[in-house]
Nucleic acid binder design. Structure first.
Lengths: 296, 296
DNA sequence: TGAATAGTGTCTATTAGACAATATGCG
DNA sequence: CGCATATTGTCTAATAGACACTATTCA
């Protein structure tokens, strides 16, 4: 097959100059989610859970000393997924993590160094399976409690406007970052639009780059997916108690769930195996049902 | 704020060498969907509809003379969305099109020229709003009927295996491209995996690059979104008849819908305006209800 | 008038939500 | 025992599916 220059494909490729055009850099960004027990004064009661994300404190320009989601440049000889798994391994020391691609962020001015396109991903891991410091050197790494909640829902205007608050709080309570997210739903031809993200004054710090958008996007996706596929199990150890699983769901969905055991159905099965060091009452131990079926 | 080299941010940026690392190329790929009337012998009956995608025939290596989804390289001075809109304008001559980002494809060997990462997008346009040849020169452009259907659903194995057929057929019936898609759902920790795409023998041609994956991904997304937001209106002119809208939904969802008018509820409103040249019976003309509300 | 679209009524089966009642295990 | 978790029962309201019946329009 010959082109208009009389080249066959082999010749064409030999003459192709990949350097001809300037190219953007591409990074993988990862929002590493986990769930963690919240305070519970009653020792006989199963503590409720909250969501956490892993952030790193940047040690370089730009955005030096600000918190950011982990990630890094995609190398030429690795696929997006391979690069993602490599980053995860470096950052958390863990293989075999559930990940899901979220969105490609590509504004021209997101990074002052150069044109950077970031592929945002989320990862779900059980809290105690990892040691975030593991892979890395002196980098400061920390878990942040994360919460996104609707604080205003305005039906008055022609466009429905919803205001959310995205709160990130370091576990030692020293850092607090709060964004306000204005979302309008313009009904001309029904689109949801994030119109405005703004940092609230209570914040003691702020996130690097446009990482507030990345995290916001990740929370939305996580909430959406948790209802349609059993990804919650990626946030728990292999063995658990029903209430524990329920609290994982509740922490993500941000509301209490009734009739939980019925809803989860035969997605979980009892097992005789014992969880060590979990003295909650009936302590009926469950695991994910490998033979679970549902209609597709 | 000073880094370990004693630089402030300004100095750091001045010394930053963007050329230091090799970078991948990034393209926007667009699956342009529309719906079109199918054959209907009875002139008094509203014809049912089918889905079509716009493909271009490549005039250059690699994959010369093969059909591909339109798209192009993202320029350094434009955002992903700006690049996408530019491509759409060039390809179809239309502004103001509904688009949605789908997925970033990033395998290392997708393009023999060089490392290319493609951001796949879908676009929805009413068929008669555009003239695909418009923007462009000698490029061959054509609408293809597109259909994806489940042809086998195997519950026997430990992993559920589903087999789909993705069929693309040029409107003049001269080109027919059929892929078989094997999808397994491994239930260890519930993931859907496209394991295998293979071209069927009946095909008279094949798609360039991994564009079968891109189109497959687009159809899935379209089917998913049509049920949760009123994007179907982007496939019709402003004024339409209920049955017409119903047939758009049916063509995308691939099945008949009962009680359609009740399901669509007050998402549409009657109007006195006339559609020119649409002699279907009661011809009750509707449009999208700008004041439509639903719970979020 | 007849055929095709539009709108309404209604029956049934299924499902979600709410909550009461009961069982179980452990300190 | 008392409390917290686990399981079952049941009532109600809401919803989806199916289909029949009526209205409207236009060649």
């Amino acid at each position: 097959m010959i082109d208009e220059n009389g080249f066959n494909e082999e010749e064409f490729l030999k003459n192709y100059d990949a350097k001809k055009y300037e190219r953007p850099s591409v990074t993988n960004d990862i929002i590493i989610f986990t769930t963690e027990d919240k305070e519970e004064s009653n020792p006989r009661k199963m503590p409720r859970k909250g969501m956490q994300v892993l952030l790193i404190k940047r040690k370089e320009h730009p955005y030096i000393n600000q918190w950011a989601t982990p990630g890094g440049f995609v190398r030429m000889n690795e696929s997006l997924v391979e690069g993602l798994k490599r980053e995860l391994k470096e950052e958390t020391g863990v293989d075999n993590v559930y990940t899901e691609q979220l969105y490609a962020f590509g504004d021209t001015d997101r990074d002052p160094r150069t044109r950077v396109i970031s592929i945002a991903n989320m990862a779900l891991i059980p809290k105690n399976s990892i040691n975030p410091m593991a892979g890395d050197d002196a980098k400061e790494v920390a878990w942040f409690w994360v919460n996104k909640k609707l604080i205003k829902n305005d039906w008055e205007k022609e466009n429905i406007e919803k205001i959310y608050e995205l709160e990130l709080k370091s576990i030692d309570d020293s850092v607090k970052i709060i964004y306000e997210i204005k979302e309008t739903i313009s009904k001309d031809i029904f689109r949801r639009r994030k119109v405005k993200y703004s940092l609230l004054e209570e914040s003691t710090d702020l996130l690097a780059f446009d990482h507030y958008k990345v995290i916001d996007c990740g929370i939305d996706k996580l909430r959406e997916k948790i209802e349609e596929s059993p990804i919650a199990f990626n946030l728990l150890p292999r063995l658990f108690v029903v209430k524990e699983l329920q609290y994982v769901y509740e922490s993500i969905m941000g509301k209490e769930i009734l009739n939980f055991r019925r809803k989860i159905g035969n997605m979980i099965v009892e097992t005789d195996e014992k969880i060590e060091g979990k003295p909650y009452r009936p302590a009926q131990v469950f695991k994910f049902n490998e033979n679970w079926e549902r209609e597709f």
